[in-house]
Protein backbone atom coordinates (compact mmCIF):
# COMPACT_ATOMS: atom_id res chain seq x y z
CA UNK A 1 0.00 0.00 0.00
CA UNK A 2 2.86 2.33 0.82
CA UNK A 3 4.13 1.80 -2.72
CA UNK A 4 0.80 2.89 -4.21
CA UNK A 5 0.82 6.01 -2.08
CA UNK A 6 4.39 6.75 -3.11
CA UNK A 7 3.41 6.66 -6.76
CA UNK A 8 0.28 8.72 -6.13
CA UNK A 9 2.54 11.36 -4.55
CA UNK A 10 4.35 11.73 -7.86
CA UNK A 11 1.17 12.47 -9.81
CA UNK A 12 -0.52 15.84 -10.21
CA UNK A 13 -4.26 16.32 -10.85
CA UNK A 14 -3.83 16.76 -14.60
CA UNK A 15 -1.73 13.60 -14.78
CA UNK A 16 -4.75 11.52 -13.77
CA UNK A 17 -6.78 13.15 -16.54
CA UNK A 18 -4.07 12.39 -19.11
CA UNK A 19 -3.76 8.81 -17.84
CA UNK A 20 -7.51 8.28 -18.03
CA UNK A 21 -7.78 9.76 -21.52
CA UNK A 22 -4.84 7.61 -22.59
CA UNK A 23 -6.53 4.46 -21.28
CA UNK A 24 -9.74 5.45 -23.03
CA UNK A 25 -7.91 5.97 -26.33
CA UNK A 26 -6.16 2.60 -26.09
CA UNK A 27 -9.43 0.83 -25.22
CA UNK A 28 -11.14 2.49 -28.18
CA UNK A 29 -8.35 1.47 -30.56
CA UNK A 30 -8.49 -2.14 -29.39
CA UNK A 31 -12.27 -2.40 -29.59
CA UNK A 32 -12.26 -0.86 -33.07
CA UNK A 33 -9.71 -3.44 -34.15
CA UNK A 34 -11.66 -6.42 -32.82
CA UNK A 35 -14.67 -5.42 -34.87
CA UNK A 36 -12.79 -5.99 -38.09
CA UNK A 37 -14.21 -8.93 -40.09
CA UNK A 38 -11.97 -11.70 -41.47
CA UNK A 39 -10.32 -10.55 -44.69
CA UNK A 40 -10.70 -12.06 -48.15
CA UNK A 41 -7.62 -10.93 -50.03
CA UNK A 42 -3.94 -10.51 -49.35
CA UNK A 43 -2.14 -7.63 -51.04
CA UNK A 44 1.63 -7.98 -51.23
CA UNK A 45 3.81 -4.98 -51.99
CA UNK A 46 7.53 -4.79 -52.68
CA UNK A 47 9.27 -1.39 -52.73
CA UNK A 48 5.84 0.25 -52.64
CA UNK A 49 4.54 -1.52 -55.75
CA UNK A 50 1.77 -4.12 -55.59
CA UNK A 51 3.35 -7.40 -56.71
CA UNK A 52 0.59 -9.87 -55.81
CA UNK A 53 -3.06 -9.95 -54.85
CA UNK A 54 -4.11 -13.36 -53.60
CA UNK A 55 -7.28 -14.84 -52.13
CA UNK A 56 -6.73 -15.91 -48.52
CA UNK A 57 -8.68 -19.17 -48.92
CA UNK A 58 -6.14 -20.60 -51.34
CA UNK A 59 -3.23 -22.39 -49.73
CA UNK A 60 0.15 -21.45 -51.17
CA UNK A 61 3.62 -20.13 -50.47
CA UNK A 62 5.42 -17.53 -52.52
CA UNK A 63 8.73 -15.76 -52.60
CA UNK A 64 8.82 -11.97 -52.96
CA UNK A 65 11.96 -10.09 -53.97
CA UNK A 66 12.65 -7.05 -51.79
CA UNK A 67 15.62 -4.72 -51.46
CA UNK A 68 17.70 -7.16 -49.40
CA UNK A 69 16.56 -10.49 -50.79
CA UNK A 70 13.52 -12.73 -50.86
CA UNK A 71 10.74 -12.75 -48.28
CA UNK A 72 8.92 -16.07 -48.05
CA UNK A 73 5.18 -15.81 -47.56
CA UNK A 74 2.67 -18.52 -46.64
CA UNK A 75 -1.12 -18.51 -46.98
CA UNK A 76 -3.11 -21.24 -45.17
CA UNK A 77 -6.76 -21.42 -44.06
CA UNK A 78 -7.62 -17.76 -44.53
CA UNK A 79 -4.47 -16.56 -42.78
CA UNK A 80 -1.13 -15.30 -44.01
CA UNK A 81 2.34 -15.02 -42.48
CA UNK A 82 5.96 -14.39 -43.36
CA UNK A 83 8.05 -17.53 -42.95
CA UNK A 84 11.41 -16.09 -43.88
CA UNK A 85 12.81 -12.59 -44.36
CA UNK A 86 16.36 -11.27 -44.87
CA UNK A 87 15.73 -8.34 -42.47
CA UNK A 88 17.97 -8.11 -39.40
CA UNK A 89 15.28 -8.00 -36.75
CA UNK A 90 12.75 -10.51 -38.13
CA UNK A 91 9.86 -8.41 -36.87
CA UNK A 92 7.38 -9.42 -39.56
CA UNK A 93 8.30 -13.09 -39.07
CA UNK A 94 7.79 -12.97 -35.31
CA UNK A 95 4.43 -11.22 -35.67
CA UNK A 96 2.94 -14.47 -36.91
CA UNK A 97 -0.39 -14.81 -38.69
CA UNK A 98 -2.72 -12.09 -39.96
CA UNK A 99 -6.31 -12.75 -40.99
CA UNK A 100 -8.53 -9.72 -40.37
CA UNK A 101 -9.35 -6.83 -42.67
CA UNK A 102 -6.93 -4.04 -41.84
CA UNK A 103 -4.20 -6.41 -40.62
CA UNK A 104 -0.71 -5.93 -41.99
CA UNK A 105 2.81 -7.28 -41.76
CA UNK A 106 5.71 -4.97 -42.52
CA UNK A 107 9.13 -6.27 -43.37
CA UNK A 108 10.65 -2.80 -43.23
CA UNK A 109 14.27 -3.57 -44.01
CA UNK A 110 13.37 -5.59 -47.08
CA UNK A 111 10.56 -3.16 -48.03
CA UNK A 112 8.03 -5.98 -48.39
CA UNK A 113 4.57 -5.49 -46.93
CA UNK A 114 1.57 -7.79 -46.58
CA UNK A 115 -1.82 -6.30 -46.08
CA UNK A 116 -5.39 -7.51 -45.87
CA UNK A 117 -7.46 -4.61 -47.16
CA UNK A 118 -10.77 -3.72 -45.58
CA UNK A 119 -13.86 -4.55 -47.56
CA UNK A 120 -15.45 -1.61 -49.25
CA UNK A 121 -19.13 -1.62 -50.17
CA UNK A 122 -18.30 -0.71 -53.77
CA UNK A 123 -16.88 -4.16 -54.48
CA UNK A 124 -19.56 -6.21 -52.77
CA UNK A 125 -20.79 -8.63 -55.40
CA UNK A 126 -23.47 -10.28 -53.24
CA UNK A 127 -25.58 -7.30 -52.26
CA UNK A 128 -26.88 -4.55 -54.46
Amino acid sequence: MKRVRDIAMLLRPGDYVVLLLGLLLVAMLFSARLQNPPGQMLVVRAKGQVVAELPLHMQRTLSIAGTLGNSLIEIVDGRARVIGDPGPRQICVKQGWISRAGDALLCLANQVTLEIPGQSAGYDSLNY
Binding site: L29, V43, G102, D103, A104, L106, T113, E115, P117
Partner: peptide, 11 residues
Protein backbone atom coordinates in the same frame (compact mmCIF):
# COMPACT_ATOMS: atom_id res chain seq x y z
CA UNK B 1 5.91 2.20 -46.51
CA UNK B 2 2.25 1.30 -46.49
CA UNK B 3 -0.04 3.91 -48.00
CA UNK B 4 -3.27 2.24 -46.91
CA UNK B 5 -5.31 1.52 -43.81
CA UNK B 6 -3.14 -1.50 -43.00
CA UNK B 7 -0.96 0.35 -40.56
CA UNK B 8 -3.97 0.95 -38.32
CA UNK B 9 -3.83 -2.71 -37.27
CA UNK B 10 -0.63 -2.01 -35.35
CA UNK B 11 -1.89 1.17 -33.73
Amino acid sequence: LLPSTGILALL
